[in-house]
Nucleic acid binder design. Structure first.
Length: 733
DNA sequence: TGGTCGCCTG
DNA sequence: CAGGCGACCA
């Protein structure tokens, strides 16, 4: 065996084995058949060799060859996919979060108590929470939370990890508010995290498994965390806004309280004997007391404010307590001014009490609305990092658009539809090698830890959130943001019952692969480059004579510019999908040497350019290569086994040779290979056999003659293959 | 010179 | 399966 096998590979010098046969569509119909010799006897004489016999005789393959087995597998896979689908229910939406928070607030409860009880810890705790968000994504990059102003933020997501404190006058107040807000934020985030985790995983997994759009865009950057960072930044902006609003509320509240206080306790600038949870512990009092200089006091005050902000009910209580205090003070004052008449004093107290109640009510309402606002703001974030908001990210937007153009080709009626037929097989369902270079790039998000659970495609907010609404103008590529990396591989196992979606997805995967490679020099420069081209040049190049590099670049650009309008209803794709590959393989059963025109005819759903054409040609070239290698291998095997005449060789459906070929071109065995292919294979095998036996293989170009023969044996391609959906038709039976 | 093909390699 | 390359043809 080794003797022949060794000669199989090396030919010192490259020989042009180009057969130079003009390939035309209606290729020769080779007069079928000459030999029908089935040499079962021979097989017996040699005995069953493990993988030795290239010939005829059925081993056990016939059993597994049954038609039933093939489709069952597919059905199973589809079922599994459906079950995944079921699992990924749409998120309840933001309202639930709001309600949850509200009810939580109303409960005045448990968690709140525990939280405020922790006093100083609270702020630390909230810091931790806040840090949580960042740390998962950016810790290894650099400590983004370090307050050092020098810590560079990634442009264009210019956003400090923690919002800087505005240098406003009531400094203490500001700090208190800030801390309080962070604590609140932490709670909200907890809730959100808890919700969004349900099907998913740990934060880092979520980040990786559900990478939004720009994951592709920045494949070249030190990225992977950027989208998350972006989310954090956006959130922080929101929070700053929310903080400002709350601060305003708080100041307003302070004013009113001050008024109340002044009305009530004009005379009594009472001292430290006041109960410490008095609402009056605001800046005014602080001024009086802080010369005692303890921060404990400030902390306690802070805690009080936090509490009160947290809980309108509690606030009311405090307000009442205040009123009582004031009443007491009034009482004291009355004792001093007894002569002035009790009646008057009572009236005053009465009005004050009414005023206080009114004030409390007002404050309560304001607090409620403020809280609702805050909660809605926080909770209206889509479950996954929106990759773009608006202005500051428009360049990113463009870049993403440029780098994911392939999705532009994908015709997806609606964002939801893109998930309808979605199946999420596990990584093991990837059975075929992928075209282009997808797997070669580490940056490819498909390179996930295999131990991770299968990625669940999360619905992008089914109910458009404010933010997602802002995505309304987003290009098709953003239609299914996270789908790309997530759905990376799996579709070719689902040729059935799926119309365009899988193919579209596959396309995206593939073109992304191409893009990845093409743009590997990429980064921002790449992006802008393409942006420029997008604006200025049509997909077709003006027939200039670019060098190879330009051609490559063009390929990338053409991919990039893939810009079929999602509304056009056209199904023309700019890239070749795994389904196209599968189709090409099936076509190989009929034609080993398809012409370019033929390819264009039969891949009519692909927008042809030089890249696509050569890729298709390359595919068939690779198919041939494998085919001929098998032929040579089995021919040599037969010779080794003592076969002396080519008539001893035949290729049947159960032969090892056919099995090998079928595994390659028809892995799922869901296509019935035409008989003609068996004949051609047999002829090829015999040609190789003859040549080797004749010792022609000493000639470096000895295969050329064989190729010349084989290229004439192409059959006519069935019309079915002209249909873009031919796979469904072909594989269904 | 562009289009192919096949070989080799990764 | 894709890239690179040399070879060949029109």
């Amino acid at each position: 065996m080794p003797d022949h096998a060794s000669s199989l590979s090396r030919q010192t010098k490259r020989r042009r084995v180009d057969i130079g046969v003009k390939r035309t569509l209606g290729s020769v119909v080779f007069s079928r058949a000459r030999e029908n010799l089935l040499l079962n006897a021979m097989n017996q004489s040699h005995g069953p060799k493990q993988d030795g016999d290239c010939s005829l005789v059925p081993h056990s393959y016939g059993g597994s060859n049954g038609d039933g087995a093939k489709s069952n597998v597919l059905r199973k896979l589809l079922k599994r996919a459906n079950s995944y689908e079921d699992a990924m229910m749409p998120f309840p939406g933001t309202t639930i979060i709001s309600q949850l928070l509200k009810s939580n607030m109303g409960k005045n409860g448990d968690r709140e108590g525990g939280f405020q009880g922790s006093g100083g810890l609270s702020s630390a705790g909230s810091d931790l929470q806040a840090e949580d968000v960042c740390s998962n994504s950016s810790r290894d990059r650099e400590s983004p939370l370090s307050p050092s102003p020098s810590s560079p933020c990634l442009p264009p997501f210019v956003c400090p990890p923690l919002p800087p404190h505005p240098p406003l006058t009531p400094l203490d107040l500001e700090r208190l508010t800030d801390e309080h807000l962070r604590a609140k934020r932490a709670r909200v985030e907890n809730i959100i995290r808890g919700m969004s985790h349900s099907p998913c995983v740990a934060p880092e997994n979520r980040e990786r498994d559900c990478p939004p759009l720009e994951n592709k865009r920045k494949q070249r950057l030190p990225q992977q965390q950027q989208s998350f960072t972006q989310l954090v930044c956006v959130r922080q902006e929101k929070r700053q806004e929310e903080r400002r609003q709350l601060k305003l509320q708080l100041e307003d509240m302070q004013k009113q309280l001050r008024q109340l206080q002044e009305k009530g306790g004009r005379g009594g600038e009472e001292d430290g004997n006041q109960s410490e949870d008095s609402v009056r512990s605001d800046g005014l009092e602080d001024r009086h007391r802080d010369h005692h200089g303890n921060h404990n006091r400030a902390n306690r005050i802070h805690g009080d404010l936090s509490e009160l902000l947290d809980d309108p009910g509690l606030f009311l209580e405090r307000a009442r307590a205040l009123l009582r205090e004031q009443a007491l003070l009034d009482g004291e004052r009355e004792e001093d001014e007894r002569e002035e008449g009790e009646r008057e004093g009572r009236e005053e107290r009465g009005t004050m009490r009414a005023e206080g109640r009114q004030l409390a009510e007002t404050l309560k309402q304001e607090l409620n609305s403020a809280m609702s606002q805050v909660v809605d703001t926080v909770a209206s974030f889509p479950p996954f990092p929106p990759s773009l908001t608006t202005d500051s990210q428009s360049p990113i937007f463009h870049s993403a658009n440029q780098r994911l153009p392939c999705f532009g080709d994908v015709i997806i009626p609606s964002p939801l539809d893109s998930f309808v037929g979605l199946s999420v097989p596990t990584a093991s369902d990837q059975t075929e090698a992928l075209p282009l270079v997808v797997r070669k790039t580490n940056a490819n998000p498909q390179h996930r830890n295999p131990s991770l659970p299968p990625p669940y495609p999360h619905h992008p907010s089914l109910h458009p959130s404010p933010l997602s609404a802002s995505l309304g103008f987003s290009p098709p590529s953003f239609r299914h943001p996270f789908s790309l990396p997530l759905m990376g591989y799996p579709f070719q196992s689902f040729p059935k019952d799926q119309r365009s979606p899988p193919e579209s997805m596959d396309l995206s995967r593939e073109t992304v692969g191409l893009r990845t490679k093409m743009g590997s020099g990429g980064g921002i420069h790449f992006v802008s480059h393409h942006h420029h081209h997008r604006q200025s040049t049509p997909p077709q190049h003006g027939g200039g004579s670019e060098g190879l590099s330009l051609i490559k670049s063009e390929c990338g650009e053409l991919q990039d510019m893939a810009d079929i309008s999602p509304y056009s209803g056209s199904t023309i794709q700019e890239g070749l999908s795994p389904n196209h590959l599968k189709k090409a393989k099936l076509m190989f059963f009929y034609s080993r040497y398809p012409s370019s025109n033929m390819l264009k005819t039969f891949f009519s759903d692909v927008k042809f350019n030089r890249c696509i054409t050569s890729q298709l040609i390359k595919w068939f070239s690779n198919f041939r290569e494998f085919y001929y290698i098998q032929m040579e291998k089995f021919a040599r095997q037969a010779i080794n086994e003592g076969v002396t005449t080519n008539e001893d060789l035949s290729v049947g459906r159960e032969s090892e040779l056919f099995r090998a070929l079928n595994m390659h071109y028809n892995k799922a065995n869901d296509f019935e290979v035409p008989e003609r292919f068996l004949e051609v294979a047999q002829i090829t095998l015999r040609e190789f056999f003859n040549a080797i036996v004749a010792g022609k293989d000493v000639d470096p170009s000895w295969k050329k003659a064989i190729y010349k023969v084989i290229c004439k044996l192409d059959s006519e391609m069935p019309e079915v293959f002209k249909s873009p959906n031919c796979l469904q038709d072909l594989l269904h039976e």
